[in-house]
Structure formats: structure tokens, C-alpha cells
Design a binder for these strands. Sequence first.
DNA 1: AGAAGATAGCTTTTT
DNA 2: GCTATCTTCT
Length: 781
Amino acid sequence: MEAYRNLNPEQEKPVADTEGAVLVLAGAGSGKTRVLTSRIAHLVNELDIRPGNILAITFTNKAANEMKERLHSMIPLVGNMWICTIHSMCVRILRSFGDRIGYDSNFSIYSDTERSNMLKKIASELGADEKGLKNIKYHVGNAKMLGLDPPSYAESEDLQCERDAKLITEAYTLYQKRLKESNAMDFDDLLTETLRLLSTDEDAEEYFSDKFRYIHVDEFQDTNEVQFKIIRLLAKKHGNLFCVGDDDQSIYGWRGAKIENILDFEKFYPDAHVYKLEQNYRSTKNILQLANAVIRNNMGRKSKTLWTENEQGERVDLHACNEEAEEALYAAKKISNYVRNGGSYSECAVLMRVNALTRSYEQEFMSDNIPYKVFGGFRFYERKEIKDILAYLRLVSNPFDSEAATRIINVPKRGIGETTVKKLEDYAQREELSIFDALINLDEIGLTAATRNKLQKFTDLIKELIIQSQSMPVDEFVREVIDKTDMRSQYADKTEESVSKLANIDEFINASEEYVKLNPDATLSDYLNQVTLSSDTDDINEDDCVTLATIHAVKGLEFPFVIICGLEDGIFPLSRAQNDDDLMEEERRLMYVAITRARKLLCLSYSKSRFLYGERNRTKESMFLKELAPALGVSSDRSSRYGYESDGYGNFRTGSPYRNGSTQNASSENRSAYGNLFPPASSANERTYGYAAQKQPAPVQNTPSARPASPSARPASPSARPAQQTENRYAVGMFVHHPKFGDGQITAIEGAPGNLLLVVNFREVGSKKLSARLAPLEIIQ
DNA sequence: AGAAGATAGCTTTTT
DNA sequence: GCTATCTTCT
């Protein structure tokens, strides 16, 4: 039994238990990934299940790629399995069946930034002040988390007790309307619209619930209500649902993750078999003892105690500092010692509760030539220069995308000002057109000839790009967009900022080239999906760098050497959690996750004062340290427990060596002390120069044409076809119906393939030009 | 229109 | 301390 190799008896049981609902409560480091992969291998190799009938939902793209990689050596045809995040899965489902609920398959995906932009605009249109905007943002997020559309949310309790209920409902309704008009979905819509599709369209439900005979869900504790609903629908037919999770590691409650999903699993599946994996293979006894000491303070958890046969290990070190520069120095020292004794930088991680804490570490590591990478925080694809290029790509891929259009209509500067854009938007809204469609009908808007000229040039540019995009690989097209739009000209001055932006643009081109190498058949739309759904975490550990990251970002990862910093009251746990039991428990779980990332060495640190909000404040130590105290024992850095620490760096003390000196002194002193001992940094500058570009984008899972034949014969959907075919539906002389303009007849077709314009003579409103790709035209005869 | 200068507001965590 | 937005000036 190949698949059972290297499994302990506890792990073997769930692997062999293939039918029905199974829940595996897997403690940190208990080998859950191995259980998952072994089980899939077992299904394919022993039970002859076709890979195409297997679905595995992971939490991150990285986890999905890793699982694929592992399975690759175990079974054939991994490519036929769906191993992806739930968001990617939804995109795939919607790309092939989205037309059933009114989306063109090239729909755009809006990130939180786009959502935020749109809501801001809407709020000001509705005359809401800042409080109102904040309120709107909160409630829209809340509604989507619960999977409620505007009318349902209006009736929900959460809104009933809200004073601004009317405003919020209005804003939410308008937001959804605009998304729809832009042929776009935000992150949450990917889930809710998939749920809607599966619960309203019998063909889709039948197709996917039949296809997925065996469903696996990793990190089940972090699924939210909507996700679990989708999963239940998919599992309805065959009922073979295998969920792995750890309620103690649920750290996404703020994003709607429901720990109840795990606690109530047996309510939905009364016959479910539940297994526990409590043996930890990752960490030393000392580390595990600490983890157990923390988590034991939580109520409302499925009781579980991790144990290990691993060695006792080094004692966990706790270090108090006077200020954050010292804390960083402490980490630098520890890490360089670790490396000097045979370790590598990539085995080290500094973990923190909030991104803001990375700064002092970056400074310190930079001056010590310690290579590092920052994960989390601002992302590569969120940078302005990159978002601008992406907006061009989005507009070309989905000309309905009005958010993209308004973003780049004057980028780079082409003399189209606020007032013009406002007029354009007003016109588009009045006529219920997309911005791009409004641009096509330019003559209808009262504008001066000069303005019209500028707009026309922009429109022509986009039209041309649309045509080019049809016959060009994605990477080449990316170059073309950057050249044609002359994006680089904005950053021609030689300031540091511009240089870095240009470097980021180059990095973006590189990333797209690599993507095309791995996915030669990918469409522009595939590429955009991949980009918006990817995070920087996906390529953690690729170079020999120390990882600087938030705890959230390293979920599921492990490091031989971990430093948890900023253990201060108000930072970890966060101040806003202080008076809320549920939030406090989540903070504690977060601490538990942080501790259990460590395999061999663990250090904890905090500062007695910290520079935050532009001022320095005294801090108190984290309450978690009190909970840990018994397990930690007396501990101070000075006693130097590690053999490899007995070198010339003992001048670092618990007391402040810099009492009368500044932060600057601290790091320059350090620089001289460390001299040239450190190897030249290969990537200390990576952050500025686009460290985060995806080196190995996830392979695109499928293309629209790869949609398998449905078991029940059903008509092909229009959106599954390439754009040209959609355009070819129309011919001169056809009678058509437009939801707003009414009935009319096509009098001419202009333009080039990929961007055909229909000239339609409407009975009531006269002649209009419409984009053949976009127009919601129904052919009457 | 667009740039420079002034001011408010902000910081969890991320698919 | 930083940025994003508003104000003022050219």
C-alpha cells in the first residue's frame, strides 16, 4: 500500500475512510498535509478514482501548489484534479457557467481597493459624510460575509438596529448594480455568486456535484458560512466530504471564518466520522509545551492536547528590550549566530502581529547585510504603477470595466480632467452605459472639440489594444500596453521613487513572461484572474532570505528558527481585542499558531517603549507572557544557553546599552561590531525593486474552451465561446432588443474583429453605436 | 489643468 | 511617520 507509507496508525484511519463525511481534527504539525495527499493518492492508485473526480480546496495558492507538487510523484494526471483555493475554484466555475447568471466570462475581479474606491464614490453621491462611508464599508463587508444581497440584508438584524439603514441599503444596492454593469465581481462575490449559481441553476449544480465525487477541504476552521454552503452543495450528490482543520488555529474570524463550522460539523453530517491527530512531528517538547500553555486558556474548543516524541530541545528564550531598534538588533544577532553555526537565512522567520513592526527589522537587517524578505504589507500588485497597467489590461479584457476606465483615462496625463470625467460618468449613468460605451458615443455628450479630441485619442488607443490583444501572447501584450500607453514617461525624472517604479514595471513584465512560459495558452483574462487572486506569500522561502511576516501570512508554514516579536499589550493582543472575549480568544489562537510555526528554536521579544503614531510610548508586556511564564521558566538572553552563542557578541545585554544614545547609534555601533562577517546581501534591496513579483505563478487551471462536456446535453453557453464568435452573432438587418433603448434594427457593422461596433437604429431613440462584445442585445429575428 | 503646499486621519490581520 | 485628500496658486 504505497499511500500508507510513513503514516502512523492515527493518520492511516482517515486515509482509509474514504466514503461519507469525515472530519479530521489535526493539531499543528501533526502531518495533516501528508494525510490529505496520502488519501488522494490512495483514492487514485488503490480505488481507481479518476483524478477529474477529485477536488481539494486549500487556503492559499502556495498550499495548492505544494500539494500538486507532492502528488505529482505519487500519481499520474494531477492536472485533471482541481486543487486550488476556494476563490480560484469559484472563478473556474463562474468562468464556465457564469453566463447562466448574467456574467460575461471575461468578468473582472475587484480587490478590496476597487471596492473601497467605488464605495467612496457612491457614498459621496449619496451625500454621506465620512462616518457614513465607514458605516457603509463595514456593512457591505458584513452583508457579503453573511452572503446576503441588499434586500435580504435590509431585513437582517444587523441592519435593523442601524440608524443609517436606508443609506446603507441604498449604497449597497447601487454598488452591486455598478459591479454588474461593469461585468465585475469583488472577492466576496466570487463566493456568493457561485453559491447563487449552484443553488439556482440545476445544470451547474448537477454538473459539479456529479463531477466532484471526492471533496477535500484543508484548513476547514477558516471557511466562512458561504464557503461551507458551497462545499455542502458540491458534496450533496456523493456525500464524500473530507475536512481537515484545527479549531485552535482559526485566525480569520474577522474575515467571517466560522469556527462553528468545525464545532458543528456533526450537525450537518450526523454520520460523520471524526478523527483526531494529536502527535506533533514538527516541534521540540519545549516549544510544544509553550503552545499548550497558551491555548489552554481558551474556552469553547474541541479538547485536544498535542504531544511529541521529538527531543526536549533548546529552551525558549524571552528577551526584553528598551526600544524596537534593540529588538531588531537582538533578532539580527540571534539570526547571524544561527547562520554562523550552519543554519541558513531561509530557516529563520521573524513573526509579528502587525505589519507596521517590520520597519526596525528592515533597517537593522539592511545595515547588517542580512538578506530578508517582507511578506504581507503592501503588495506588489497593489502599487500604483502596477495597478495602472493592470487597469489597462482589465479594460481591454473587459471593456465594461468602468472602474478600470476611469482609473486610467488620464494616466499618463493626457489632459482629461476631473470635470470631463464627471460629465462622462454622468452621461454613462444616465444612459446606463459603461464608460467605454459612453466613449464610443462621444458625440452625444456636450463637450468642446478639444476635449472630444483627447477622449477620441484615448478611445482609439483602447480599441487598438483590444484588437491586438486578440492575437498576442499575454507577455507580449503587456509590453505593448506599456509601450503604447507610454507609461514609463511619467517616471522619467531620476528620483529614487521613479527609479523604483520603473524597476517595478520591469519586474511586472518579467512576471508576465514567466507566467506565459508556464501557461502558454493562457488568455488575458486567465492572467488577470491569476494576478488578482495571488498573494506575495505564494513564493515565500524561494531565496535564502530571512522571512519577515505577520503571523497570518505564515499560516501553514514552518521554520526551524522563529522569533516572535512585539509581545506587548495593545499590539499582541491588539488593543481592540482587549474587551471582547471572542476577539481575545482569536488573539490567543494567533499566538498559538505563531509558536507552533517553530521547529527547533523559538525566541520571544518585546520592547518597553515603542515608536508608533509618530510618537514614542511606554508599553506593557503582553498578557500572553504571563500565561506562558510557568512554561517559560526564568529566562533572559544574558544566560546564553545556546552553545553557538559563546562568541564575541556578549556585549548585548538585557539592560539598555543605548540609554543615552539614539537609535542611529545603535545601528551604527552594530554595523561596526559586525564588520564584514555577513555575506553580501543578495536581496536586501528587493523590497524596493519588486521583490514580490510572482516567480512561479500558479499554472492556469483551465481555459474556457476546456470546459468538459456536460453529462446532460445542454446548449453551449455564449460566454464559453471566444469573443469573435459572440460578435459573429450579429449581422446587418437583424432586429434586436435593448433593455433600455427598446427595439431596433442593425444598420451597419463597423470596426475590426475584437472590437466590432454595431450601428443600431432604434425605433424610439434613433441611431446608436454599440459595442458588439458588450451590448446587452437580444436578437429578435 | 495641473502642480505645489497644507492638513486630516490613520493602522489589524488577507483570499 | 506616512498617505491621501483638500486648498491654493500658476
